[in-house]
Design a protein around this nucleic acid. Sequence first.
DNA 1: TTAGCTAGTTGTTTAAGGGTTACCATAAGT
DNA 2: ACTTATGGTAACCCTTAAACAACTAGCTAA
Lengths: 334, 334
Amino acid sequence: MVTLKQLAKELNVSISTVSKALNNSEEIGEETIKRVKELAKLYNYKPNKVALSLKQNKTKTIGVIIPNILNHFMAKVLFGIEREAGLHGYNIITCISNESLNKEKEGFQLLANGSVDGFILAVAKETQIKNEIAHFKKTLGDGFPIVMFDRVAHDVQCDKVIVDDFDSTYNATKYLINEGRKNICFITTIDGLSVGKLREQGYNKAILEENNQQLLTLKIDKQEDSQEKIKEFFENNTVDGVISADNATGVISINTAISLGLKVPNDVSVIGFSSKYISSHSIPKLTIIRQHAKDMGAFAAQLLINRLKNPSLPANETTTKIVKTSFVKNGSTL
Amino acid sequence: MVTLKQLAKELNVSISTVSKALNNSEEIGEETIKRVKELAKLYNYKPNKVALSLKQNKTKTIGVIIPNILNHFMAKVLFGIEREAGLHGYNIITCISNESLNKEKEGFQLLANGSVDGFILAVAKETQIKNEIAHFKKTLGDGFPIVMFDRVAHDVQCDKVIVDDFDSTYNATKYLINEGRKNICFITTIDGLSVGKLREQGYNKAILEENNQQLLTLKIDKQEDSQEKIKEFFENNTVDGVISADNATGVISINTAISLGLKVPNDVSVIGFSSKYISSHSIPKLTIIRQHAKDMGAFAAQLLINRLKNPSLPANETTTKIVKTSFVKNGSTL
DNA sequence: TTAGCTAGTTGTTTAAGGGTTACCATAAGT
DNA sequence: ACTTATGGTAACCCTTAAACAACTAGCTAA
């Protein structure tokens, strides 16, 4: 990597002349600018990012702390973030918290030392369960803006991008009720998460509003075998409708129903919070509640970058963007 | 963020005294060291990463260029990289090439200016199709080590981590032959990729070695609907065995077979290059060729970090690590 | 005509950003 | 007078930018 110093030496001018020439300063003669630029091009000069960061006290880098990159939804949000950030000249540096509070804290430790200008994150499961928010407040207090997406800590004052989990699950449940389903169950592998709870509440409300319906819930632990649990559940309960809170148990429910000789959607109707990609892992395809993960990522990046560009924005004036889901009807519902 | 300067001022000593004290230098008295450390702790001092990077001319950051983060395999490799890098004190900064040559080049442009110490990447599809390698050579020439994983450019001299695609597909095909299958087909959505070709060749070899077998290949474009294509294919061909080259068409094949009234594995046997996660999206579960994506990521990180720590390693002495797949027998084979 | 001034043009010097470290300075102790 | 212990000074990494310097050209006034 060639530096200003080397160019300056070769051109017999001072370092700052080279710097200014490359920045098209008025103070430098046309001829000199031309000479400098030619040599710079020849050597493929690029300003050293680190030196720039130090000088300008901003890194143009966003720290992203993701609980689980193997989750398709999270990966898609990350994709959206990366893309939007790139459009604004920002890079992203990724930490994976693995749903652990400690790793989440470490992420801040590691990056809040000048490595990044701000953070985008979804709160780790353990953090949500223990309801810890001190590290968020501390990081905010240190002057790093934070944007939370999907799983947020409500008691932290920062920009947020969330899904209308409650409403969309409520509506999806209503949809099954209107199909005439009598035994609608709720299946979740994300009981510990804020979004998981909201979805359950949406289901509960819709069910409890009817007087001929009753709650029927299957909670599966991450460690357990979803296929087995669902099979067992179907065998021991009468089920003609399924709302799946996560992105896997929807297609698994369809496949299980079929393997038990049931017809989908005639005998059982299934709706899941899932992605288009996963929805095709069953025949018929799963009817899904799409979360527009890419858009969520893009919004999160926009909110953060906006704050970075306007440092005067008051810290207590925060935005919460609610990204509405779309109901995508595929073959698993009538 | 508190700086050495501020600590020095408050303690009435020079900046270098503070620096040395924090680094346990022999030159500083015990008492002073104690005072300095206490104040540093109080203010939660952390050395500014950017300043350190500038001074030491290394960023302790790895640039990762991923073709598609929505691909479960790629996400898993990224996970492995992040984890291993973290263990060695490295951060990762992620660019998503989206299978585009231009975005891949941009990734280098953006990061090879002091932002990172080296690169880990899987070659983008477009790059493989156009067989472009100039940007790799240039980056290497500029002194940035590169490690390629999975999809590699064979003509570029750098460390690589690959899968034994050929052998494992050959063996998987053999497995189906030994099951007594007579009409084994090969389904792929990754025909454009080097790994896709290798897998096809492995299948081809196994089939052509038998004189009562013949090649039967279904190539699906990313744009097309895999479910439909596979259904059509099954209806127009006699198939009793499937080798899937990607991570989705395996489970889709099982589901399609079942929906057509075939028994899996009795009537049709299926093996796919897929992950445990995806393998449970069918009943019976898909028998898979596991690629140990996390390990691949970890190996890639190790190779790169090793090179960064030993700059004297000759550039033409490169390592190619072949990560052997595991055959995981689930319900979709006998 | 020409010294001397002003203004404009073009570059250079220098400081700053935060940290490390080779080298130097000062004091006390022998 | 010479060590030894301790701490300070200054250079360096690379870039930017404010402040300053030098030179030219045009103009005025004697």
